[in-house]
C-alpha cells in the first residue's frame, strides 16, 4: 500500500458516500444516471467475488463490503425509494453498447482464462466506461448540480491516483498490470473534459453547464 493508492481509495469512498448522502438528504436523484450506478454495482459484484474465496486484509475486505453495499443502496434509492425523482427521459444511454463489447473483450484479452479472472477483467473494462451514461446525461441536460460535480471529481480523481500508484509500484516493486493500467488510462481520459470544466467553471457557479 502506498499513499497514492490509499488516497485513491479514500477519494473513491468519498465519491460513493457523497452520492449516497446527496440522494438520501435531498430525497431526490435528479440529474443522476441510474444506468451508471447499475454498471458500478455490476463492476463491484464481478470484481469482488473473491470476497468469498480469499482474505487479503481487513482493509481490503472492509472496503469491498462498503463499496458493494453503497452501490446497491444507491441503485435501490434511485429505482425504488426515490423512483419518482428519477429522470429517465435523460438517462437514455444504451448500456448494452457498453456491456456486450466489454464482455467480449474480457474473453479475448485477459491474463488467465479462469472464471474469476474473466470476471475481474470484465469489471476492469466495464469500470473504465461505466461513467459514460452519467456524462451523457449531463451533456443532455446541459447542467449538473454542484454536489454531482464533486461526486464526479472524486470519482475521476481516484483512478488518476491509481495511475500514479501503478507508476510507483512498477518503479519500486516491478509490479504492473497492463490490463488495469490501459483501462485506467481510458477511464481517466474520459473525465478530462469534465475535469477541465470542473476547474475552470466550478467556482462561483451554482450549476456546471456542459456545452451539449
Amino acid at each position: 500500500m502506498n499513499i497514492f493508492r490509499l488516497t485513491g481509495d479514500l477519494s473513491h469512498l468519498a465519491a460513493i458516500i457523497i452520492l449516497l448522502l446527496k440522494i438520501w438528504k435531498t430525497r431526490s436523484c435528479a440529474g443522476i444516471s441510474g444506468k451508471s450506478q447499475i454498471l458500478f454495482a455490476l463492476v463491484f459484484t464481478s470484481r469482488y467475488l473473491d470476497l468469498l474465496t480469499s482474505f487479503i486484509s481487513l482493509y481490503n475486505t472492509t472496503m469491498k463490503v462498503i463499496y458493494i453495499g453503497c452501490a446497491y443502496a444507491t441503485v435501490y434509492l434511485i429505482y425504488a425509494k426515490f423512483k419518482a425523482t428519477y429522470d429517465g427521459n435523460h438517462d437514455t444511454f444504451r448500456v448494452e453498447f457498453l456491456v456486450v463489447p466489454v464482455g467480449g473483450l474480457a474473453f479475448l484479452v485477459n491474463h488467465d482464462f479462469s472464471p474469476l479472472e474473466i470476471l475481474w477483467t470484465f469489471s476492469i473494462y466495464l469500470e473504465s466506461v461505466a461513467i459514460l451514461p452519467q456524462l451523457f446525461m449531463i451533456s443532455k441536460t446541459g447542467e449538473a448540480e454542484t454536489i454531482t460535480t464533486h461526486y464526479l471529481f472524486f470519482l475521476g480523481l481516484y483512478r488518476a491516483l491509481y495511475l500514479i500508484n501503478w507508476i510507483w509500484r512498477f518503479y519500486f516493486e516491478g509490479f504492473f498490470d497492463m490490463i488495469a493500467i490501459v483501462a485506467g488510462v481510458v477511464q481517466t481520459i474520459l473525465y478530462c473534459d469534465f475535469f477541465y470544466l470542473y476547474v475552470t467553471k466550478g467556482e462561483g457557479r451554482s450549476q456546471l453547464s456542459i456545452p451539449t
Binding site: 481509495d9 473473491d50 481490503n60 472496503m63 498490470d177
Partner: peptide, 10 residues
C-alpha cells in the same frame, strides 16, 4: 501479474 493472482488492489 504473471499468474500470481494477488488481487490486493480494490
Amino acid at each position: 501479474r504473471t499468474g500470481d493472482c494477488t488481487k490486493d488492489e480494490l
